[in-house]
């Protein structure tokens, strides 16, 4: 088991190299001069431009730039962005907000998705099941920015239950609405996945045997139906955690959350190469770790799976 985890960490190395290389190459190939973004509307003198080019190694060929960047990463120096702020500081600043938002969204979609899915699965074909299925279809079908603006308008502006936007502090109550919006689509998927899985398991032979043993209905459902049904759901949730941690560009944009998604978006617009590469690499690593977590959780839930 320890060896398995160690091997998975070793696998991160080629993933890291490949991802940075690819992203670096894409940013390098972007049309336009990166210094133009730094200098802004008024422009800089040729001497300043040359100085900037030297400072950010823009005068070097692609390979040298990439290797210099790698060297920086390996010495825990992500460099500075085009505004001159250390990138590591920026990530440290915005990531906690995104992580908080992601975990809140994940908890919301997991709890509600599993509970609703369980009830719908156990009452297959009844009113609750049918209405929940239709609702989940609507949630999946409507684009996230529609849902986002709609809820912001209704709950934030009309009813004024919360602030329509998130302040720099990003408190729990402020983040609740964006977390709901962010988790809404995944909630629909979790619900449907749980429901299907429950329906499949509730007719399994071992469930009938468990009933025949004299267990209460409640225990049969929780211990024998639910645990077995959660295996595919957990896989989905784990992958989703990785995606949510990457920051939701749209949701963070709507609610003005100062998170990873928003920062990345601004960096892309500014053509801020070092910033984009660093954030994307960071996100890839987070995603890989989330996947590792899923695989370990999977083995814990299903003892038939063993890693060696």
């Amino acid at each position: 088991m320890v060896w398995y985890i160690a091997r998975r960490f070793l696998q991160l190395i080629p993933v890291f190299l490949g991802a940075t290389l690819l992203v670096y190459f894409l940013v390098f190939s972007l049309p336009g001069d990166a210094t133009a973004a730094i200098c802004g509307e008024r422009g800089c003198t040729p001497a300043v431009v040359a100085g900037l080019r030297e400072q950010y190694n823009l005068d070097q060929p692609f390979w040298i730039q990439y290797l210099l960047y790698l060297k920086g990463v390996l010495t825990f120096d992500l460099g500075t962005n085009f505004s001159g702020r250390p990138i590591a500081t920026i990530i440290a600043e915005v990531f906690p907000t995104t992580a908080k938002l992601a975990i809140m969204a994940l908890v919301i979609e997991a709890v509600f998705g599993i509970v609703f899915g369980l009830i719908a699965g156990l009452r297959k074909g009844r009113i609750f099941d049918s209405s929940v299925l239709v609702l989940s279809l609507i949630v999946i079908a409507v684009p996230i920015f529609v849902l986002g603006f709609l809820m912001q308008f209704l709950i934030g502006v009309k009813l004024q239950w919360t602030n329509p936007t998130v302040s720099g502090d990003a408190t729990f109550t402020e983040l609740l609405l964006p977390a709901i919006v962010l988790g809404l689509v995944s909630f629909a998927y979790v619900l449907r996945l749980t429901r299907t899985s429950i329906i499949e398991n509730v007719n399994a032979d071992y469930v009938r045997t468990a009933t025949a043993k004299g267990l209460s209905r409640r225990r049969v459902v929780v211990v024998h139906v639910l645990r077995n049904s959660l295996i595919p759901v957990v896989t989905f949730l784990g992958a989703d955690l990785g995606a949510l941690m990457g920051g939701a560009i749209v949701t963070e944009g709507i609610f003005n959350v100062n998170g990873v998604g928003n920062t990345l978006y601004r960096a892309v617009l500014n053509g801020d190469g070092p910033m984009v590469v660093s954030i994307v690499t960071f996100l890839i690593l987070i995603f890989c770790l989330a996947n590792l977590l899923v695989d370990l959780l999977y083995a814990w839930l299903d003892p038939r799976i063993r890693y060696a």
Binding site: Y206, A212, L215, H224
Partner: peptide, 25 residues
């Protein structure tokens, strides 16, 4: 019925492969 099951009426099912829950010892 729950009272009777197990303590008064036991059952041995047909297929040993599918009648034990695979995720519990």
């Amino acid at each position: 019925i729950v009272e009777l099951r197990g303590s008064s009426i036991g059952m041995v099912p047909q297929d040993p492969m599918s009648n034990l829950n695979p995720v519990w010892k």
